[in-house]
Computed example of a mutant assay.
Amino acid sequence: MKKFVALTTMGALLAGTALADPVEVKIGYALAENSHYGAGSKKWIEVTEGLVGDRFDFVEFPASALGGEREVIEGLQLGTVEATIVSSGVLSNFVPEVGVFDIPFLFRDFEHARSVLDGPIGQEMLAKFEDQGLIALAWGEQGFRHITNNRAPINAPADLAGLKLRTMENPVHILAFQTLGAAPTPMAWPEVVSALEQGTIDGQENPLSVIVSSKLNEVQKNLTLTGHVYAPNVFFVSQIFWEGLTDEEKEAFRKGAVEGGLAMRAFVDNAEATGAKAMEDAGMAVNTLSVEQKEVIKEALAPAYADYAETFGAELIQQISDAK
Protein backbone atom coordinates (compact mmCIF):
# COMPACT_ATOMS: atom_id res chain seq x y z
CA MET A 1 0.00 0.00 0.00
CA LYS A 2 2.85 2.39 0.89
CA LYS A 3 4.52 1.67 -2.44
CA PHE A 4 1.24 2.32 -4.25
CA VAL A 5 0.73 5.66 -2.46
CA ALA A 6 4.32 6.69 -3.23
CA LEU A 7 3.98 5.81 -6.90
CA THR A 8 0.64 7.58 -7.11
CA THR A 9 2.08 10.71 -5.50
CA MET A 10 5.09 10.67 -7.82
CA GLY A 11 2.80 10.26 -10.82
CA ALA A 12 0.72 13.19 -9.72
CA LEU A 13 3.81 15.36 -9.30
CA LEU A 14 5.12 14.41 -12.74
CA ALA A 15 1.74 15.07 -14.30
CA GLY A 16 1.60 18.43 -12.56
CA THR A 17 5.02 19.34 -13.88
CA ALA A 18 4.10 18.31 -17.41
CA LEU A 19 0.85 20.23 -17.27
CA ALA A 20 2.26 23.30 -15.48
CA ASP A 21 1.32 26.59 -17.07
CA PRO A 22 4.09 28.14 -19.18
CA VAL A 23 5.97 31.01 -17.56
CA GLU A 24 4.82 34.40 -18.85
CA VAL A 25 7.50 36.55 -20.43
CA LYS A 26 6.46 40.16 -20.99
CA ILE A 27 8.52 41.89 -23.72
CA GLY A 28 8.08 45.66 -23.79
CA TYR A 29 9.39 48.01 -26.49
CA ALA A 30 8.82 51.56 -27.67
CA LEU A 31 7.51 51.29 -31.23
CA ALA A 32 4.74 49.47 -33.08
CA GLU A 33 4.82 45.78 -33.96
CA ASN A 34 5.52 46.61 -37.62
CA SER A 35 8.75 48.39 -36.66
CA HIS A 36 12.31 47.07 -36.38
CA TYR A 37 11.59 46.52 -32.68
CA GLY A 38 8.72 44.24 -33.60
CA ALA A 39 10.91 42.40 -36.12
CA GLY A 40 13.56 41.84 -33.46
CA SER A 41 11.08 40.78 -30.80
CA LYS A 42 9.30 38.28 -33.02
CA LYS A 43 12.55 36.67 -34.16
CA TRP A 44 13.70 36.49 -30.53
CA ILE A 45 10.50 34.68 -29.59
CA GLU A 46 10.56 32.41 -32.63
CA VAL A 47 14.14 31.22 -32.08
CA THR A 48 13.76 30.80 -28.31
CA GLU A 49 10.56 28.78 -28.68
CA GLY A 50 12.23 26.65 -31.33
CA LEU A 51 14.91 25.71 -28.81
CA VAL A 52 12.87 25.19 -25.63
CA GLY A 53 9.35 24.46 -26.87
CA ASP A 54 6.33 25.89 -25.06
CA ARG A 55 7.89 26.44 -21.65
CA PHE A 56 7.24 30.17 -21.92
CA ASP A 57 4.26 32.29 -22.85
CA PHE A 58 5.68 35.35 -24.62
CA VAL A 59 3.48 38.44 -24.56
CA GLU A 60 4.57 41.50 -26.53
CA PHE A 61 3.81 45.01 -25.29
CA PRO A 62 4.67 47.28 -28.25
CA ALA A 63 4.17 51.03 -28.60
CA SER A 64 5.35 51.82 -25.04
CA ALA A 65 2.41 49.92 -23.55
CA LEU A 66 4.48 49.28 -20.42
CA GLY A 67 5.73 52.87 -20.24
CA GLY A 68 8.80 54.73 -21.44
CA GLU A 69 12.12 52.97 -21.87
CA ARG A 70 13.50 54.04 -18.52
CA GLU A 71 10.36 52.81 -16.77
CA VAL A 72 10.59 49.45 -18.54
CA ILE A 73 14.24 49.00 -17.56
CA GLU A 74 13.36 49.81 -13.96
CA GLY A 75 10.61 47.18 -14.27
CA LEU A 76 13.28 44.64 -15.23
CA GLN A 77 15.32 45.60 -12.19
CA LEU A 78 12.27 45.09 -9.98
CA GLY A 79 11.30 41.84 -11.72
CA THR A 80 7.88 43.11 -12.83
CA VAL A 81 8.93 42.93 -16.51
CA GLU A 82 10.92 40.02 -17.90
CA ALA A 83 12.35 41.32 -21.18
CA THR A 84 12.75 44.37 -23.37
CA ILE A 85 14.51 45.85 -26.37
CA VAL A 86 15.76 49.34 -25.51
CA SER A 87 17.46 52.11 -27.46
CA SER A 88 20.76 53.59 -26.35
CA GLY A 89 18.96 56.73 -25.22
CA VAL A 90 18.60 55.84 -21.56
CA LEU A 91 21.36 53.27 -21.18
CA SER A 92 24.02 55.69 -19.96
CA ASN A 93 21.81 56.32 -16.92
CA PHE A 94 22.58 52.74 -15.90
CA VAL A 95 26.07 52.16 -17.38
CA PRO A 96 27.66 55.55 -18.11
CA GLU A 97 30.46 54.03 -20.23
CA VAL A 98 28.00 52.89 -22.91
CA GLY A 99 27.52 56.54 -23.84
CA VAL A 100 30.76 56.40 -25.80
CA PHE A 101 28.87 54.78 -28.68
CA ASP A 102 26.67 57.89 -28.93
CA ILE A 103 29.49 60.26 -29.84
CA PRO A 104 28.60 62.05 -33.11
CA PHE A 105 30.38 60.86 -36.25
CA LEU A 106 32.31 58.19 -34.30
CA PHE A 107 31.35 55.37 -36.66
CA ARG A 108 32.22 55.56 -40.34
CA ASP A 109 29.42 53.30 -41.57
CA PHE A 110 27.27 50.29 -40.66
CA GLU A 111 30.09 47.80 -41.18
CA HIS A 112 32.33 49.69 -38.77
CA ALA A 113 29.61 50.03 -36.10
CA ARG A 114 28.52 46.41 -36.27
CA SER A 115 32.10 45.18 -36.13
CA VAL A 116 32.76 47.15 -32.94
CA LEU A 117 29.56 46.04 -31.22
CA ASP A 118 30.05 42.38 -32.15
CA GLY A 119 33.70 42.49 -31.09
CA PRO A 120 35.40 42.66 -27.68
CA ILE A 121 34.55 46.32 -27.00
CA GLY A 122 30.82 45.83 -27.56
CA GLN A 123 30.62 42.53 -25.71
CA GLU A 124 32.53 43.87 -22.70
CA MET A 125 30.10 46.78 -22.58
CA LEU A 126 27.10 44.41 -22.47
CA ALA A 127 28.61 42.58 -19.51
CA LYS A 128 28.67 45.78 -17.43
CA PHE A 129 24.87 45.82 -17.14
CA GLU A 130 24.81 42.80 -14.84
CA ASP A 131 25.87 45.01 -11.93
CA GLN A 132 22.62 46.93 -12.50
CA GLY A 133 20.34 43.89 -12.26
CA LEU A 134 20.11 43.58 -16.04
CA ILE A 135 21.26 40.83 -18.38
CA ALA A 136 22.23 42.33 -21.74
CA LEU A 137 22.09 39.49 -24.26
CA ALA A 138 22.80 41.09 -27.62
CA TRP A 139 23.02 44.30 -29.59
CA GLY A 140 20.18 45.31 -31.86
CA GLU A 141 20.10 48.27 -34.21
CA GLN A 142 18.16 51.34 -35.22
CA GLY A 143 20.53 52.88 -37.74
CA PHE A 144 22.17 56.27 -38.20
CA ARG A 145 20.18 59.18 -36.82
CA HIS A 146 18.84 62.02 -38.97
CA ILE A 147 17.07 65.30 -38.20
CA THR A 148 13.47 66.19 -39.04
CA ASN A 149 11.91 69.57 -38.27
CA ASN A 150 9.19 72.02 -39.24
CA ARG A 151 11.41 75.10 -39.60
CA ALA A 152 13.86 74.61 -42.48
CA PRO A 153 16.34 72.12 -43.96
CA ILE A 154 19.61 71.70 -42.02
CA ASN A 155 22.76 72.46 -44.03
CA ALA A 156 25.08 74.06 -41.49
CA PRO A 157 25.38 74.59 -37.71
CA ALA A 158 23.69 77.98 -38.08
CA ASP A 159 20.50 76.21 -39.21
CA LEU A 160 20.31 74.54 -35.80
CA ALA A 161 20.46 77.79 -33.83
CA GLY A 162 17.61 77.85 -31.32
CA LEU A 163 15.92 74.81 -32.88
CA LYS A 164 13.78 73.11 -30.24
CA LEU A 165 14.86 69.57 -30.94
CA ARG A 166 13.61 66.52 -29.09
CA THR A 167 16.47 64.31 -28.00
CA MET A 168 16.59 61.16 -25.96
CA GLU A 169 17.52 61.37 -22.27
CA ASN A 170 21.13 61.03 -23.33
CA PRO A 171 23.81 63.41 -22.03
CA VAL A 172 26.11 62.77 -25.03
CA HIS A 173 23.40 63.79 -27.51
CA ILE A 174 22.30 66.75 -25.41
CA LEU A 175 25.84 68.14 -25.16
CA ALA A 176 26.34 67.78 -28.93
CA PHE A 177 23.23 69.77 -29.81
CA GLN A 178 23.89 72.40 -27.16
CA THR A 179 27.36 72.86 -28.64
CA LEU A 180 25.82 73.32 -32.09
CA GLY A 181 23.47 76.01 -30.76
CA ALA A 182 20.23 74.04 -30.78
CA ALA A 183 17.81 73.84 -27.86
CA PRO A 184 17.78 70.08 -27.10
CA THR A 185 14.66 68.95 -25.27
CA PRO A 186 14.89 65.51 -23.64
CA MET A 187 11.55 63.76 -23.94
CA ALA A 188 10.27 60.19 -23.62
CA TRP A 189 9.19 58.77 -26.97
CA PRO A 190 5.45 58.38 -26.17
CA GLU A 191 5.19 62.17 -25.88
CA VAL A 192 7.03 63.12 -29.06
CA VAL A 193 4.39 62.96 -31.81
CA SER A 194 1.86 65.02 -29.85
CA ALA A 195 4.58 67.56 -28.98
CA LEU A 196 5.41 67.90 -32.68
CA GLU A 197 1.72 68.29 -33.55
CA GLN A 198 1.26 71.00 -30.91
CA GLY A 199 4.47 72.82 -31.82
CA THR A 200 5.98 72.35 -28.38
CA ILE A 201 9.11 71.26 -30.20
CA ASP A 202 10.30 72.06 -33.73
CA GLY A 203 11.80 68.71 -34.58
CA GLN A 204 13.43 65.49 -33.52
CA GLU A 205 16.25 63.18 -34.59
CA ASN A 206 15.98 59.45 -35.25
CA PRO A 207 17.03 56.79 -37.76
CA LEU A 208 14.98 56.24 -40.89
CA SER A 209 13.66 53.00 -39.39
CA VAL A 210 11.88 55.10 -36.73
CA ILE A 211 10.98 58.03 -38.96
CA VAL A 212 9.25 55.75 -41.46
CA SER A 213 7.53 53.31 -39.06
CA SER A 214 6.25 56.21 -36.92
CA LYS A 215 4.98 58.12 -40.00
CA LEU A 216 6.71 61.32 -38.92
CA ASN A 217 5.96 62.73 -42.36
CA GLU A 218 2.48 63.43 -40.97
CA VAL A 219 3.87 65.91 -38.41
CA GLN A 220 7.20 67.05 -39.94
CA LYS A 221 8.01 68.96 -43.13
CA ASN A 222 11.78 68.57 -43.50
CA LEU A 223 14.08 65.56 -43.35
CA THR A 224 17.85 66.13 -43.40
CA LEU A 225 19.99 63.03 -43.81
CA THR A 226 22.71 64.01 -41.35
CA GLY A 227 23.75 60.52 -40.21
CA HIS A 228 25.22 62.25 -37.17
CA VAL A 229 25.02 59.36 -34.68
CA TYR A 230 24.83 55.58 -35.00
CA ALA A 231 22.00 54.23 -32.83
CA PRO A 232 22.17 50.70 -31.45
CA ASN A 233 19.77 49.09 -29.03
CA VAL A 234 20.00 46.18 -26.62
CA PHE A 235 18.07 42.98 -25.89
CA PHE A 236 17.65 42.70 -22.11
CA VAL A 237 16.15 40.26 -19.64
CA SER A 238 15.67 40.84 -15.94
CA GLN A 239 18.41 39.37 -13.77
CA ILE A 240 15.67 38.16 -11.40
CA PHE A 241 14.03 36.25 -14.27
CA TRP A 242 17.40 35.06 -15.61
CA GLU A 243 18.43 33.45 -12.34
CA GLY A 244 15.34 31.23 -12.48
CA LEU A 245 16.27 29.77 -15.87
CA THR A 246 18.13 26.56 -16.57
CA ASP A 247 21.40 26.70 -18.52
CA GLU A 248 19.54 25.37 -21.56
CA GLU A 249 16.92 28.11 -21.29
CA LYS A 250 19.56 30.82 -20.84
CA GLU A 251 21.35 29.69 -23.97
CA ALA A 252 18.04 29.67 -25.87
CA PHE A 253 17.26 33.25 -24.83
CA ARG A 254 20.77 34.35 -25.74
CA LYS A 255 20.67 32.72 -29.18
CA GLY A 256 17.21 34.13 -29.77
CA ALA A 257 18.39 37.63 -28.90
CA VAL A 258 21.37 37.39 -31.26
CA GLU A 259 19.05 36.32 -34.09
CA GLY A 260 16.64 39.08 -33.12
CA GLY A 261 19.46 41.58 -33.47
CA LEU A 262 20.25 40.29 -36.95
CA ALA A 263 16.57 40.61 -37.88
CA MET A 264 16.66 44.25 -36.74
CA ARG A 265 19.73 44.89 -38.87
CA ALA A 266 17.99 43.44 -41.92
CA PHE A 267 14.98 45.68 -41.26
CA VAL A 268 17.24 48.72 -40.88
CA ASP A 269 19.10 47.90 -44.11
CA ASN A 270 15.79 47.93 -45.94
CA ALA A 271 14.72 51.19 -44.28
CA GLU A 272 18.02 52.81 -45.23
CA ALA A 273 17.56 51.72 -48.84
CA THR A 274 13.95 52.84 -49.19
CA GLY A 275 13.05 55.16 -46.30
CA ALA A 276 14.18 58.55 -47.64
CA LYS A 277 12.38 57.99 -50.94
CA ALA A 278 9.24 56.88 -49.07
CA MET A 279 9.28 60.05 -46.96
CA GLU A 280 9.87 62.22 -50.03
CA ASP A 281 6.96 60.53 -51.81
CA ALA A 282 4.87 61.21 -48.70
CA GLY A 283 5.52 64.94 -49.02
CA MET A 284 8.62 65.64 -46.93
CA ALA A 285 11.40 67.85 -48.27
CA VAL A 286 14.54 65.68 -48.10
CA ASN A 287 18.13 66.89 -48.29
CA THR A 288 21.42 65.08 -47.68
CA LEU A 289 24.52 66.55 -46.05
CA SER A 290 27.64 66.35 -48.18
CA VAL A 291 30.96 65.15 -46.78
CA GLU A 292 32.12 68.76 -46.63
CA GLN A 293 29.02 69.88 -44.74
CA LYS A 294 29.51 67.09 -42.20
CA GLU A 295 33.11 68.19 -41.69
CA VAL A 296 31.93 71.72 -40.87
CA ILE A 297 29.57 70.32 -38.24
CA LYS A 298 32.33 68.12 -36.80
CA GLU A 299 34.59 71.16 -36.50
CA ALA A 300 31.85 73.01 -34.62
CA LEU A 301 31.64 70.05 -32.22
CA ALA A 302 35.29 70.41 -31.13
CA PRO A 303 34.41 71.59 -27.58
CA ALA A 304 32.07 68.61 -27.13
CA TYR A 305 34.74 66.20 -28.38
CA ALA A 306 37.12 67.51 -25.70
CA ASP A 307 34.47 66.77 -23.09
CA TYR A 308 33.85 63.27 -24.48
CA ALA A 309 37.60 62.50 -24.33
CA GLU A 310 37.65 63.49 -20.68
CA THR A 311 34.52 61.48 -19.88
CA PHE A 312 35.19 58.26 -21.77
CA GLY A 313 38.93 58.37 -22.29
CA ALA A 314 40.70 59.42 -25.48
CA GLU A 315 42.27 55.97 -25.79
CA LEU A 316 38.91 54.14 -25.93
CA ILE A 317 37.49 56.63 -28.43
CA GLN A 318 40.56 56.23 -30.63
CA GLN A 319 40.36 52.45 -30.33
CA ILE A 320 36.76 52.51 -31.57
CA SER A 321 37.58 54.98 -34.33
CA ASP A 322 40.51 52.86 -35.56
CA ALA A 323 38.61 49.56 -35.50
CA LYS A 324 38.34 47.85 -38.88
Rank of each mutant, 00 (worst) to 15 (best):
E218A: 04
L180Y: 07
F253E: 00
H228Q: 14
L301Q: 02
F110V: 11
L180F: 04
G283S: 13
A39G: 13
K128H: 06
E310M: 04
E295R: 15
S290Q: 06
G162T: 11
Q178M: 04
A152W: 01
S209L: 08
D281H: 14
F267P: 05
F58E: 01
E69W: 12
S321G: 11
G28Y: 01
M187I: 07
T226H: 15
L14C: 07
V219I: 09
Q77E: 05
E130R: 13
V219M: 00
E310R: 05
L289Y: 10
Q319M: 10
D21M: 08
R265I: 14
E169Y: 10
D102P: 13
W44K: 01
G119M: 02
G50D: 08
V52M: 11
A161W: 05
F4S: 08
I103C: 01
S214W: 00
Q318R: 12
R265Y: 07
V193C: 00
A257H: 11
E24R: 05
G122V: 03
L208S: 06
G256P: 10
Q220W: 01
E111C: 02
L51W: 03
A182H: 06
P157R: 09
E248K: 02
Q318M: 10
G283P: 06
R55H: 11
F236G: 05
R55A: 13
A15I: 08
P207D: 02
I174T: 12
A195C: 07
E82Y: 00
I121H: 04
E71A: 01
A161V: 10
S115D: 08
L175A: 14
A65N: 04
E251G: 09
L76N: 03
F94I: 08
P207W: 01
V59H: 07
S290H: 09
L163N: 10
P62Q: 02
V212H: 06
I103L: 11
I135S: 01
Y230T: 06
H112K: 05
G133V: 08
T167E: 03
R55Y: 04
F236P: 02
F312A: 07
G283Y: 02
L262P: 08
T80S: 15
M1V: 15
T288S: 14
V86Y: 00
E243R: 07
A136Q: 04
F241T: 11
V52N: 06
E24K: 11
L66N: 06
R145L: 06
M279N: 10
E292S: 09
M284F: 13
P104D: 08
I297L: 13
K255A: 05
